[in-house]
Structures are given as structure tokens and as C-alpha cells.
Simulated scan of single mutants.
Amino acid sequence: MTTDSTSPLLVVDDLCVSTVDAPDTPIVRNVSFSMDAGDRVAIVGESGSGKSLTCFSILGLLDPGLRVSGGDIRWDGVSMVRMSAQKRRRVLRTDLSIVYQEPLTALNPLMPISRQIREGGTSVSQRDVLDILHEVGIRDPERVARAIPHELSGGMRQRAMIAMAMVKSPRLLIADEPTTALDVTIEYQVLRMMFDLTHRRGTALLFVTHDLGVVARLAQRVIVMYRGQVVEEGSTATVLRAPQHEYTRRLLAASSLATARTLVLEDEEGR
């Protein structure tokens, strides 16, 4: 595949997603943004705003009743919308990974964790499995590698899913509200680990969430979606401190605004 080395890693250009039965009435409309290698971008908005549909469109994982009805998605300058199924599978196999909301439903309930991680990449050895489990903060990787999902806690399952996504060192990791099912203490530990791991490996991170505190901790840029459209985009500090759109202001008013702003300040001081 020929790529353009000067182009962004990912470009979502005027993306529209519609149902098959109503192609002229998109439920995601004219979404545009780009990402470079190592970027950390968060998509925020209420349920039904189009966050997950946008991400699943990038991965080609839309439900059969949905389709990309307009715009384009380019990976390394090459259209994924017009890409052959074989080439798309190759990109997904090597360059893109996703971490889902609920690992208990996303993981195979009958398969040991080690086998699921080995299937996450090509030529993954058992040593690779143990190394990545250790890297995601699992203290007893041998035991966890042998376990099946229901034998692990929610936090351990989510770490195992991140290990499965990262074992191939993807260039882009998409995380679709990956800590929804976790309590607050475990949530922060998992998010911190995921941030550190992607940062060390130079992996771009596209993070879907409704938690602006999480955005303040993890994202360089934030995209705000409302009713299937992008209503605001900018640096995290700018959007959280001086939101321009009324919907963004309402999101901030409904969240822990003081905490979000404090986290931005702490992150800037940490840099």
C-alpha cells in the first residue's frame, strides 16, 4: 500500500453515517478531525451524540444496518472507505486497536487470556504475552495468562483487554469508555496505566468518554459532539476554560467543573 508520509496519521473528513433504510438522513453528520502520531484526542458528549459510531466507522465495525453515507476516512493518506476489504483487514490487524466498554462481553468467555492476547497480533509468543501483562500492571502474569475472563476482577479484565489491544504496538488505540464498569479508584489506575503505555510506545489515543475529569487528565485536544455533529473542538485547556458552544457550557456545568479545571492546571505544571 502506498502512503503519503507528509499526511496526518488519520483524517476523518466530512463523515456521515446513515441507516441503510434512510441513507439521506444521517445520524452522524459532517464530522471532521485529524490525528498525528502520538496525539491524544478525546471525544465527549452525551449518550447518542455519535461518539462511538464515529469510532466504529473508523474501524469498519458498524452494525449491518448502518453505513458510511458520505465523506471519507483516510489512514496514512489512503481512503479506508474505498479500500478493499483485504487491505482494511491488514490495517486493522497491524495498526489499529480498540478497547471496549465492557471486557466481560468483549472477551471470549471460554478462552484463556493468553490465547486471546496471542490472537491480538501476528507472531506473538508466550513470552510476549507475559511481558505485555506485566506492562499493563498485572503482578502475576503467569496466573492471569492461564485464567479465563470470569476468574478475573473487572479491573484485571480491562487490563487484559488493553494488553490484547497493545501487544501488536498499534499506531492508534481507540478506547470506547473503557472504564465505565469500574469503580473510581480502579478507573484512575487503569486510565493512568493506559496513558503511560500509549505514551511510551508512541501510540496515538482516541478516547471516548463523558467524563471531563478524564479528558483533563488524558487529552491534548477535545472534540465535543452533540446530536451527531461536532459542535466544538480545540485544545483541552482552551475548551475547558473558555467553551464557545452552549452545549459545551452545559456539559461543563453538569460536571465537576472545578475539578476539571484543576486537573488541567496540574497537568500543565507536571509538563
Rank of each mutant, 00 (worst) to 15 (best):
T122L: 11
T122R: 14
T122E: 15
S123D: 15
V124L: 11
V124A: 07
S125T: 15
Q126F: 15
R127H: 13
R127D: 14
R127G: 15
V129D: 03
L133N: 01
L133V: 06
H134Q: 15
E135M: 09
V136K: 00
G137R: 00
R139C: 10
D140T: 13
V144N: 02
V144Q: 03
V144G: 03
A147Y: 11
I148V: 14
I148A: 10
I148D: 00
I148F: 08
E151Y: 14
E151C: 08
L152N: 05
L152Q: 05
S153I: 06
S153K: 05
G155Y: 09
M156S: 02
Q158C: 10
R159C: 01
R159L: 08
R159K: 12
A160H: 07
M161H: 04
I162F: 06
I162Y: 06
I162V: 14
M164C: 12
M164L: 13
A165P: 10
M166S: 03
S169K: 15
S169I: 09
P170A: 04
R171K: 15
R171S: 10
L172G: 02
L173I: 05
I174R: 01
I174A: 00
A175C: 07
A175I: 08
A175S: 10
T179F: 08
T179H: 03
A181M: 04
A181H: 06
L182M: 06
V184Y: 10
V184S: 12
T185Y: 12
T185S: 15
T185I: 14
T185R: 14
I186S: 07
E187V: 11
E187C: 13
Y188A: 15
Q189P: 03
L191I: 09
M193A: 13
M193P: 09
M193E: 13
M193I: 13
